[in-house]
């Protein structure tokens, strides 16, 4: 593990994502990526008596699917880095409590999955961890309950609002094996351009995404054209437009041709009433695990810079009038034969 430039870390041993899987809810299963997901639940209750337990069930399903795909056993996993949006990260903890896997809970809001992949790659790169689990989840209903209004409340959403994805993604990272390499990563800086509108998270997160992507390109002396895709987590349509503008104006970099956003992929905004797109930890986790990594394994995508975006406010900080700090963590995913 070596530092490249100011912020980027290179994982010299080339940790590999040997398997990745996801589990999602009903709306996600009806979206454009319906065929990709490993497990689609027909209702968002997932046989649980509370939304919080339903989210924990998603975690269980995604982890079990990833373990099965890799043909390993739960006790083989040396450490799990997992997180979600609920207070005290209960979905991850409750979802993993019967597994006996050593767990380090993470909070990075919607950037959690990118952060978890970074932590797994770093842990495996030390040589002391033989198999690491990255996991992140979110649930529309539990997120609404914690951050917004009760489900049955008859309110209207603004066009800039995003829909929290009901989904979980889990990936196993090992020192070697068949799969997708994590060659570089970086932990992002907190960026706050003063946005206070909690119904426009895309706008709050876009500056953080721009900063991390610009830092990454600078530190690795690379150009947008060197990537098949620069993938942001959940900026949605509003945040994505802002990202492209900020990249041009502040950093003089044009990423239009390679930029994609998980939040824009997961729902069909015209049909699914998702407004500006999907959001939540489960958004990028499920899209990366079930849509991006499989394409990389088939060599359809070779180099993907995955920049997970997170808005770090709490319901309290929003009520107290504070602006929304955001962060973006990035990992570079490289397919076999995709260059170093």
């Amino acid at each position: 593990m070596k530092r490249r430039g100011r912020y980027v870390v290179a994982f010299d041993s080339l940790p590999v994502i040997i398997s990745a899987a996801s589990s999602v809810g009903k709306a996600e299963g009806e979206g454009p990526l319906s065929q990709c997901f490993d497990c689609v639940n027909s209702n968002d209750g997932i046989g649980s008596s509370t939304w919080e337990r339903a989210e924990a069930s998603l975690v269980k399903q995604a982890v079990a699917a990833s373990v099965k795909k890799a043909a390993v056993k739960m006790p083989d996993i040396d450490v799990a880095f997992a997180g979600d949006l609920l207070n005290q990260c209960t979905a991850s903890t409750f979802g993993l409590r019967d597994t006996d896997i050593p767990l380090a809970g993470l909070f990075g809001a919607c950037s959690t999955f990118a952060l978890a992949l970074f932590m797994c790659a770093a842990a495996v790169d030390t040589g002391a961890v033989r198999l690491a689990l990255a996991e992140a989840s979110s649930h529309f209903c539990s997120a609404e309950k914690q951050f917004r209004f009760p489900l049955e409340y008859g309110g209207q959403r603004t066009p800039t609002a995003q829909r929290t994805v009901t989904g979980a993604g889990a990936a196993l990272v090992a020192p070697e094996g068949e799969g997708v390499y994590i060659t570089h990563g970086m932990i992002g800086r907190i960026t706050d351009y003063g946005v206070k509108d909690i119904a426009n998270m895309g706008a709050a997160m876009a500056p953080a995404a721009a900063r991390t992507i610009a830092d990454f390109l600078k530190d690795t002396h690379s150009q947008p054209g060197d990537y098949d895709m620069i993938l942001t987590g959940d900026l949605g349509s509003v945040g994505s437009d802002l990202l492209l503008e900020i990249m041009q104006e502040e950093y003089g970099v044009d990423i239009n041709n390679v930029h994609a956003d998980c939040g824009k992929m997961i729902f069909d905004s015209q049909v699914q009433d998702a407004h500006a797109g999907g959001s939540g930890c489960g958004c990028s986790a499920s899209v990366v695990c079930s849509h991006i990594i499989p394409q990389m394994k088939e060599n359809k995508l070779k180099r993907v810079l995955f920049a997970g975006t997170g808005a770090l406010m709490s319901p309290l900080s929003a009520l107290q009038g504070d602006s929304i700090p955001a962060v973006t963590h990035a990992v570079l995913l490289v397919a076999k034969g995709g260059g170093s």
Binding site: T158, Y193, L242
Partner: peptide, 10 residues
């Protein structure tokens, strides 16, 4: 940035 956000928000 607030102006930019306002302009880009539908």
């Amino acid at each position: 940035y607030a102006k930019k956000v306002k302009a880009s928000a539908p």
